[in-house]
Design a protein around this nucleic acid. Structure first.
Ligand code: MN
Ligand code: MN
Ligand code: MN
Ligand code: MN
Lengths: 234, 234
DNA sequence: CTCATTTGTTAGATTAGCCTAACTTTTATA
DNA sequence: TATAAAAGTTAGGCTAATCTAACAAATGAG
């Protein structure tokens, strides 16, 4: 049985090693910063997790999850996102409130509990921030993610997720009148300071780079990539 | 903010000091046994809780909750019982499964969460074991409790609660075909070894003292106590 | 009232998780 | 390529929660 702290380290490592560029390893300081602890602290834990065969790590090297560690990390993420969905769907929490409480609930140890929550929610596949909920068997599809910042001027796109789950950011999104699955038109993009002019629900707004790179979208106007051919078994 | 451990000590103290005889204090060893720790450990915590003004305690004396401590303890009990009710009512857990998970959930820190669970359940007043759920304002009525062991031969009574919440005991109750609000007739009581012959749902059974003193009942045949006269304010 | 038993306390040790300060290795830049 | 900056490690210390072993106080049975 893992401690809450150990679970948090595994989850952090998963998040860092599959973020954006899919870089497969994370450094000690990076991990420490992400978790809000000092590098010395993270270093101790890395040694402990290596002992338990949950991560690959060697002195002065970067770290990554073993198959075992990855399985456990994905399970924590699954619980986190199911709880967020529960809070949002069943208890009327707003999307900027769910994360903090889910940080606590994700560590409750009861397979039956999480299975029941999953059933109660009819096996959801996305959480309130548009993140994929891993399946009970540990599969987590990594969806194609493009941010608002990368969208072309003149195009229209649909918001399908956010990358920053902080209450501050999420409330700013709400304040702009923007919600999940709304359509956004890019009116202009000042390359000099990366300011975007956008239109949402008929209202115009200017947003900065920081904002734009935290909104995940799918383009309405871009070429559809042909659906990947399904490989037949054998 | 209290730690999970501190909350557990306060809850234990509440439980010990309002059990049965309403004895108002608990000893160090008693508390330690209840929590499954050594007396030395409990002793340290008693000193810490006294520092925090949550309990009355002095060297070689018994302990009890202060008003502050009692308020906090009742809040933990409230959360515990609301979670048990949630698991039972909304997720289909059986009454012998809820306690263990509620032991974890009772420590989640979020007022909004527990308020929402309370609302979702339509403000229940009893948990699945027949225990009173304290109100949000911290009132916990101590209902009149008589056990099956105390019932007279020939009388019929109704099961309204259990005193032992262990899965082992609860499954034994299930096994006898007995559930909450069922009626029980006392056919015989062997005073020598305290064995009771009872009839439940048309089926006869023999039960021992240990069992009988853990079933809480109200008598169908006993004199109703006159409702206590309501005192007018002033 | 006495002394054996029960109850409670203290001292000292351990483990997990965290820190600071000092050190070492790696890396990137001049 | 030398060296300064960044990244990572180690040593030593702290707190919370636990333990064991030894000790002290309270109690109660004769
Ligand atoms: Mn979250
Ligand atoms: Mn967490
Ligand atoms: Mn319970
Ligand atoms: Mn508890």
């Amino acid at each position: 049985m893992l401690s809450t702290t150990e679970e948090n380290y595994l989850k952090a490592l998963l998040q860092l090693t599959m973020e954006d560029g899919l870089k497969p390893e994370a450094g000690t300081n990076e991990l420490a910063t992400h978790l809000g602890v000092k590098p010395a602290t993270a270093n101790d834990m890395l040694k402990k997790l290596r002992e338990k065969k949950l991560i690959h790590y060697e002195k002065y090297g970067k770290s990554s999850l073993t198959t075992q560690g990855r399985k456990l990390a994905i399970d924590v993420v699954r619980k986190h996102r199911l709880w967020e969905t529960f809070l949002y769907e069943k208890l009327g929490f707003s999307w900027d409130e769910v994360h903090e409480v889910a940080e606590q609930l994700e560590h409750i140890q009861s397979q039956k509990l999480i299975d029941s929550i999953d059933r109660l929610l009819h096996y959801p596949t996305y959480d309130p921030h548009g993140d994929v909920i891993p399946t009970a068997s540990g599969e987590m599809k990594m969806p194609y993610r493009k941010t608002l910042l990368e969208e072309e001027v003149g195009h229209t796109c649909k918001m399908v997720g956010v990358k920053d789950n902080s209450a501050t950011f999420l409330r700013y999104v709400d304040q702009l009148g923007l919600s999940m699955h709304n359509h956004i038109r890019i009116l202009a993009h000042q390359p000099y300071d990366n300011i975007l002019e956008i239109e949402v629900n008929g209202k115009k707004a200017s947003v900065g780079q920081r904002f734009a790179e935290n909104i995940i979208i799918v383009c309405d106007d871009c070429e559809r990539k042909p659906a990947p051919k399904k490989r037949r078994k054998n």
